[in-house]
């Protein structure tokens, strides 16, 4: 704690309200270069609000968001240009556009400069299924494929930090496993990841550190292993199956 490394992404005392409803009341977090950090929390905790506020999609009422020490713009198109991109909750692929066109949209901020060929190849290496479906309309993809497309699309802007809002939402366990495996690979290639999930176990198993968000406030944080073992977390977020799984490790 003596030699403070500068975080790549830092959120400080962030407050967001929807009218009279306060969704985030002073949330802070740090993500260091190369990390995978997860934020877990139940329905309505404010996870999506946090992601959208970082992206400038909802107004930040107070507090600040910094990337490598400099303030992130409040306009989302500038945020993307500055090096942060989001794979949003519910995937939000452009259904009437093809897989290729969706990926091109992800590369939009790069303008005409440079070819996107290399990045397409990268995304196709991560998700070969997208390559097979390159000309297919995104709306006709399966849920898992749409999630891969949403992640691939977010990667096309070559972000320094990739934000993921519930990538496991509505997917079968086997697909979730696949996608989380790819997230690990993406991280190994130098992309820092901030992930919010209701699926706390998967998120904590993947991440280095975790935060617990509860009705708009961070109530706990620490290395993911510790959170996984924490009895309060187990009771509140990991459910019965989780408790069993972790109890077998404990003595």
């Amino acid at each position: 704690m003596t030699t403070e490394r500068e975080p790549l992404l830092e959120v400080k005392d962030l407050r967001v309200s929807y009218g009279a409803i306060r969704a985030l009341s002073g949330v802070s977090l740090k993500v260091y270069e190369g990390e995978i950090v997860s934020v877990i929390g139940s329905n309505g905790a404010g996870k999506s609000t946090l992601m959208n506020a970082i992206m400038g999609m909802v107004r930040r009422e107070a507090g600040e968001v910094r990337l490598s020490g400099s303030l992130l713009d409040s306009r989302s198109y500038r945020v993307v240009q500055q090096g942060v991109s989001l794979s949003p909750e519910g995937r939000k692929v452009f259904a009437p556009l093809t897989v290729l066109e969706n990926l091109r949209m992800g590369a939009f901020p790069r303008g005409g400069q440079g070819s996107i060929g290399e990045d397409l190849e990268w995304v196709f290496t991560l998700f070969p299924r997208l390559k097979e479906r390159i000309g297919q309309y995104a709306g006709t993809l399966s849920g898992g494929e749409q999630q891969m497309l949403a992640i691939g699309r977010a990667l096309m802007s070559r972000p320094r930090v990739l934000l993921l809002d519930e990538p496991s939402l509505g997917l079968a366990p086997i697909i979730i496993k696949d996608i989380f495996k790819e997230l690990r690979l993406i991280n190994n290639e130098g992309v820092t990841i901030l992930l919010v999930e209701q699926n706390a176990r998967q998120a904590l198993l993947l991440s280095d550190r975790g935060y617990v968000l509860q009705t708009g406030e961070m109530v706990m944080d620490g290395p993911s292993q510790e959170l996984l073992a924490n009895p309060e977390i187990k009771a509140a977020y990991l459910g019965a199956g989780g408790e069993k799984a972790i109890r077998s490790v404990k003595h």
Partner: peptide
């Protein structure tokens, strides 16, 4: 392309930069 994407979902087009 951006206009076609925005016609489907303006908000998400904004999210793409």
């Amino acid at each position: 392309l951006a206009i076609r994407a925005a016609a489907y979902d303006l908000r998400t087009a904004g999210l793409m930069g």
